[in-house]
């Protein structure tokens, strides 16, 4: 039994309100159906019906976890999420499998690389993008303690970073050991990108570049304070995400910078479009999202910045 299954088992045992629904995606929770009996419902490949039913269950006072492929959950059922979960603000926790680059070999139809932007666009719906299984389970436990509509990017991987504090769903987490108040670069990231960004930091620091890394497990509501501090403190800020640049965290940070009138050097490392399907290491490498590529791209950004000279009036 993985930690997700253990969490569902334990929570369902103490909280009779909880129900688990899936649209034929029980791969991560094979031990759960026999444990939960009637409180586990597999509707088949029917994401719209799954969300509608989740809303109906929640309207009866239940807390519902839906678990489905991220691309189909967020896109096929988009209007059902908006109308039936977001508008009435019902406690449905929507867990999306294989988000971002994790759909590796499936091709563009399965790539949830717009999911964060789509879910963030809706009032009332939180967006939680944990970096590893531990953070996922801790965050889910917090959501069970305080149920509300939330989209969760599922991740079951081993620890992405050394945990100093227990996660909270509200706070950005500064991961780097760098104590310098004014780093050369701040890297803002979340979810599956965290270990790759930390690998990039090791390489950057070997070349004498000082880095602050901020992991933002909650994209909505977002810890704006930690972002504003990074924008103020660092010479250059780079957002690294396995998401479309056009609607992801980079867009959000741009909004924040403009709203707070912060003149910042702000750059995206993300996906310009759907990525070529393949195995995950190659997907990361080809899209410039593995540790070495991130380090290389950040270095290039810093070099470009260094060659830009302020122009003088009259020249």
């Amino acid at each position: 039994m993985n930690r997700y299954e253990l969490l569902l088992r334990d929570r369902c045992a103490i909280d009779p309100r909880i129900m688990i629904l899936t649209a034929e995606n029980r791969g991560h929770m094979r031990s759960v159906p026999p444990l939960l009996g009637d409180r586990f419902v597999d509707v088949g490949i029917a994401e719209q019906t799954m969300i509608g039913m989740a809303a109906g269950l929640a309207a009866r006072g239940r807390v519902v976890v839906v678990h489905a492929l991220a691309a189909f959950l967020t896109l096929r059922a988009f209007e059902f999420i908006r109308d039936d979960v977001a508008i009435p603000n019902l406690p449905v926790i929507m867990v999306g499998m294989v988000p971002g680059v994790l759909s590796d070999g499936n091709g563009p139809t399965h790539q949830a690389i717009d999911d964060v932007g789509l879910m963030r666009a809706m009032p009332n719906v939180g967006v939680f993008c944990p970096a590893d299984e531990e953070e996922f389970v801790e965050g889910m436990a917090e959501l069970f303690d305080n149920p509300r509509p939330c989209y969760v990017r599922y991740i079951g991987s081993q620890a992405a970073y050394r945990r100093e504090h227990r996660t909270t769903l509200q706070r950005g987490i500064v991961l780097s050991d760098e104590r310098e108040c004014c780093p050369d670069v701040a890297l803002l990231t979340y979810g599956a990108m965290v270990p790759h960004v930390l690998e990039a930091v090791q390489q950057l620091e070997q070349t004498g570049v000082s880095v602050r890394v901020v992991h933002l497990p909650m994209i909505d509501p977002l810890d704006e304070t930690v972002i504003i501090e990074a924008l103020h403190d660092a010479a250059v800020t780079v957002v690294v995400e396995d998401h479309l640049i056009r609607s992801g965290l980079y867009s959000v940070v741009c909004e924040i910078a403009i709203r707070h009138r912060i003149h910042a050097s702000l750059h995206p490392i993300g996906l310009p479009t759907w990525f070529a399907a393949g195995r995950l290491p190659q997907v990361l490498r080809m899209n410039g999202l593995d540790g070495a590529s991130i380090a290389h791209r950040v270095t290039a950004i810093l070099n470009d910045e260094a060659t830009i000279q302020p122009t003088t009036n009259g020249e």
């Binding site: 419902v41 719209q48 019906t49 799954m50 969300i51 509608g52 039913m53 989740a54 809303a55 109906g56 269950l57 929640a58 309207a59 009866r60 006072g61 239940r62 059902f80 039936d84």
Partner: peptide
């Protein structure tokens, strides 16, 4: 589908 969720509950 919302009614189905209520019916199930």
């Amino acid at each position: 589908s919302v009614g189905m969720g209520m019916a199930l509950s």
